[in-house]
């Protein structure tokens, strides 16, 4: 059993010791092995790797410039020249889908990383800090969560104008409470554990307790949660771009590709299919992967424990 997955009940002070390189590799290989044993996990891994690969190498794979207009060849069906046809401005839809993946992952990964970082810090402080600080942080979380994400996004975009930065800001602000609450709950449970009480009895500093002992015990669960949130964030970005309030043209986004497709659906169904398919693949891929990772890491769900 790897140290990161131990719950508070089974935790020992030794379990929080830093992992050396060999054990990290061992954990990774073990996780990969378990993942590939599960059909859905394997499928999720393949889908996620495909999306990441195509986004990373969009510049190499894409046969055309995604913003180059060719009005005379607009709304063409799939052909040998244009695998997914062309949009209303004659742009190659396949190339736009590939570059749209870059935007989707860029927004998802950066905003989730930031939200996770802030959520972690605030959650640790709320869970382990004084009661009054817990109350303040929880109130802030509740205030933020009371706004539906899209409505909040619409308000922010109206005030600041649409951009990638705005989308990231909206996702970070609305996601921090999700991670923060999970960390807070975990931290409060861990705070009553013997190894933490022992550290406190030895006058260990708060940063040491939080970052050396608490953090390794909550980060695993948080990462799984984050991987399952990636498709949600991608959908938010696509939704805002669909409404014209996200990524601005001519930069391709899956949402704006779907919007273009919707506007010209009577002329050709291909842009809407081309924009929708990667969203489905990505959502399924990250969901399968996240659920499989949860099954592997959560001892309560593991059949071999």
């Amino acid at each position: 059993m790897n140290q990161l997955t131990q719950t508070g009940d089974k935790q020992t002070p030794e379990a929080t010791q830093p992992l050396n390189e060999n054990s990290t590799l061992k954990v990774l290989l073990d996780t990969l092995r378990r993942l590939t044993r599960q059909p859905l996990g394997l499928l999720g891994l393949i889908l996620v790797c495909s999306v990441i690969f195509s986004a990373l190498f969009a510049g190499v794979i894409a046969p055309y410039d995604p913003v180059a207009l060719d009005i005379l060849n607009r709304l063409q069906p799939p052909s040998a020249e244009h695998w997914l046809g062309t949009d209303q401005l004659g742009r190659d839809t396949f190339s736009r889908v590939l570059y749209g993946g870059q935007i989707a992952l860029q927004v998802a990964l950066s905003s989730i990383a930031l939200a996770l970082g802030f959520g972690l810090i605030l959650g640790l402080l709320a869970g382990f800090g004084p009661r009054w600080l817990d109350n303040i942080i929880l109130t802030l979380f509740d205030v933020v969560r009371s706004f539906p994400t899209i409505i909040f996004a619409l308000a922010v975009v109206t005030l600041t104008g649409p951009s990638i930065g705005t989308i990231v800001l909206v996702v970070v602000v609305t996601s921090i409470p999700i991670y923060g609450r999970v960390v807070r709950t975990q931290t409060q449970a861990l705070a009553q554990q013997e190894f933490i009480l022992a550290e406190r009895a030895m006058n260990a500093s708060m940063p040491r307790i939080l970052f050396r002992h608490m953090l390794p015990n909550v980060i695993g669960q948080l990462l799984i949660l984050a991987s399952m949130d990636i498709p949600i964030v991608i959908t938010i970005e696509a939704g805002l771009s669909f409404l014209g309030l996200g990524i601005q043209p001519p930069t391709p986004s899956w949402g704006s590709i779907i919007n273009d497709g919707y506007s010209f659906i009577r002329n050709t169904p291909w842009p809407i299919i081309a924009g929708g398919l990667p969203l489905i693949i990505t959502t399924l891929g990250f969901t399968f992967l996240g659920e499989s990772l949860r099954d592997i890491f959560d001892p309560k769900l593991r059949k071999d424990v």
């Binding site: 913003v67 207009l69 401005l89 014209g244 043209p249 001519p250 919007n259 273009d260 506007s263 010209f264």
Partner: peptide, 12 residues
């Protein structure tokens, strides 16, 4: 849609 398409042509 019409406005955004026009805007993209002007942009190009």
């Amino acid at each position: 849609a019409t406005n955004v398409t026009t805007a993209q042509i002007i942009q190009a």
